[in-house]
Design a protein around this nucleic acid. Structure first.
Lengths: 248, 248
DNA sequence: TCAAAAGTGTTCATTATACACCCATGA
DNA sequence: TCATGGGTGTATAATGAACACTTTTGA
């Protein structure tokens, strides 16, 4: 009950030189980023996909990603992929999880860092008509196959979003700057995939006191137009709510 | 209003062969894992650290980590580090975040995947007297320096733990299989760094119905001994509570 | 018998949920 | 004038927070 311990010996003190050679030698892997880019359009939550660029996964949808170059910051690589594909700058982007199974990529060892991105589809609808890009309904994607381990990655990010959107004001990144409460509720219903009570939803958001009435109304609707609001990010940042409450 | 888009051209369809060369060529980085290993001893939350093995950070504490070999799974690498250092198998280990700033490591580009590990200190106290290993109080670590960007990594994992322990039954990994409610509360107070009401704490945990009275009591205490409980992981897994409630 | 922590309930405040009617607008 | 969704309040249930005394044990 002790002899089986330490199959491998602990490392000895290392010089920078020794470590350098280790780092520069064989101990390297290819690193990529993959972006799960969510959009919200026609009251549906969508993900931006591209047809696989490998024969092995021909016809399968995959996430947008690319290799990280050795002199490139991780986040920068994810931003680059986004910029390339959507033409958008300054979008919401968060690292979610790193996927590193040995055989996840047919070309060899590629470890990938998954990012979740939320973009406002209205503001750049035209940019993505070219290529093999495609906005796919999240609902249908849950039941379909994808190339590589991208289904895994997608599901992880989707669950991350579902949880996160209830505790942080991420969702507004998917809406125009000015939005109606109906739009906001539709968004939450789409992400969480369930109906919410309209009155309670309104009460909830108004009681948080982060919505600013911009004094405008919806246009081009066939019914009484709703008021438009914007989210007060400044006020939210100041608040820094402490998270409390044990429950599982 | 469109000409500034796509500074970089989208990729073209790739053959596996083309990609292979990319993956195998220069586009590689060194990848490591770093473990933030938490323990709970004498009613304090502690982290297992080692003196830096680089001259540059001599005297500074650092996390336990190692390079990931190209044919090694990420999680496996983290497990290996844990096994090497603590002699323990079968411990709680979760990936938290990947750190990839360009100059985070003096030996060159090293991207590191941070893991949070929770171990029961009682069950292997003797294994770590050798080396330069050291259990450091989390409280004091928050105010001190560390080598590399390990302070960042540590803080990220610590906040992760504080949040996570309130929503998932992680904490039990830091306790013996059988524990008193007082021990459990001490653990939560240490992690969250605040006092909790004893009666409400007990009510909360009993109402969850995951604690099994094992019919034993504490020994060697100078006061009325408390009952011992274990956590019913099976029951918890079956329950799969749906997370609901918008609030931020 | 003393010191120390175990064990235990109630009240009050806050928050979540369920639910229905009138109003403003454009067609 | 009609169809559509906007806007609003109340009652009830569930949960969270504050708070003190008696009991059991070992020293």
């Amino acid at each position: 009950m002790g002899s089986e311990v330490n199959e491998t010996k602990p490392q000895q003190q290392k010089t920078l030189k020794g470590l350098l050679s280790e780092v520069q030698s064989i101990n390297k892997v290819a690193l990529s980023v993959d972006c799960v880019i969510f959009g919200f359009d026609e009251n549906k939550l969508k993900v931006l996909l591209i047809k696989s660029d490998l024969k092995k996964y021909q016809g399968k949808w995959t996430l947008l990603g690319d290799l990280v170059s050795p002199d490139e910051d991780l986040d920068a690589a994810a931003y680059r992929v986004l910029k390339q594909r959507t033409g958008m700058d300054d979008v919401f982007l968060k690292q979610v999880k790193t996927f590193g199974k040995l055989n996840r990529h047919p070309a060899g060892r590629v470890v990938t860092v998954a990012y979740c991105s939320l973009i406002n589809v209205q503001s750049h609808k035209l940019r993505i008509m070219d290529n093999e890009l495609h906005w796919q309904d999240v609902g249908s994607l849950v039941d379909s196959e994808m190339g590589f381990d991208h289904k895994d990655i997608f599901l992880t990010c989707y669950k991350w979003l579902q949880k996160r959107v209830q505790e942080h004001p991420l969702g507004f990144n998917l809406l125009p700057k000015k939005f109606s409460l109906r739009e906001l509720q539709n968004l939450y219903e789409a992400i969480l995939n369930r109906k919410l009570d309209r009155r309670n939803f309104r009460k909830k958001f108004f009681s948080m006191n982060f919505l600013i009435d911009v004094g405008e109304e919806e246009h081009n609707v066939h019914h009484r137009p709703g008021k438009l609001y914007k989210f007060d990010f400044e006020k939210y940042e100041k608040k820094k709510k402490v998270w409390a409450g044990i429950d599982f």
